[in-house]
Amino acid sequence: MEKRAIFQGRLLPFALVAPQLVVTLVFFYWPASQAVWQSFLQEDAFGLSSEFVGFANYRDLFAKADYYRTIGTTAFFSALVTALSLSIALFLAVQADRQLKGATAYRTLLIWPYAVAPAVAGVLWFFMFQPSLGLVSQGLRGLGFTWNPLLDSTDAMALVVMAATWKQVSYNFLFFLAGLQAIPKSVIEAAAIDGARPVRRFWTIVFPLLSPTTFYLFVVNVVYVFFDTFGIIDATTAGGPAKATETLVYKVYSDGRVGGDLGGSAAQSVILMVIVIALTAVQFRFIERKVQY
């Protein structure tokens, strides 16, 4: 049965949709079109002189090995963070979904990190892992590991991956837990009666039934890694050492805001926008087919 509101006139439905449309126009289409226009200009920071340069900004970008490396870094970073944050969250959610004493307390604690702003999370991890004074670094050094994210690119990447994952696990956990609780107990019990062991039950029943949640989270996580990790990177490594943790969105910032190259930075954000639209489209087109609603 479908529920449908019937409106008498034409005006009311449009009036009701208008706020949403206005918000989208003002906060998305308008700035996006500005970015596209700016990407064809070369301009000084004050906007005193600007020249239409066609695709020169794009050509400059793709002529540099730098840009490809940043794309590579972003791909590596997002794959790692998405995979880790999804699998850790799922593991935790499955554990928390049992009949446990004080389960609510566990759940609340696991959700907390999501309330932390990315920049704050970044600063937190920066302090813990600060090479000479950080608590964790001192512990690592005590165990005989050398830890120096200021110079070692692997250490720096590990640091931002950990911080970004930690921040996102709670969000994923929340959704996974809700998803798990929506799975009818009867199905699982039936499987148990048929003799399926917990691991088998998870992979043949729970995981497929959870796929809409997983798919949704997958899309959201990819977008998160592309954009929202900016604060974490800025506060922990600022893209260093030697650009080892510079992602696409960080490069937009450092070229445009720090470097004052607005045209080049706008071209990058247009490319970034295209990449994310394409990724989301691909996800909906191909992965969604395998999702069982």
Binding site: L150, L151, D152, S153, A238, G239, G240, P241, A242, K243, S254, D255, V258, G259, G260, D261
Partner: peptide, 22 residues
């Protein structure tokens, strides 16, 4: 130098690469 803020980042990146032995 124009864009000195980012210029410093570029120089730092290269110094870091040298110090890391790359």
């Amino acid at each position: 130098f124009g864009g000195m803020v980012q210029m410093r980042d570029v120089w730092s990146e290269e110094i870091e690469a040298a110090l890391a032995g790359k």
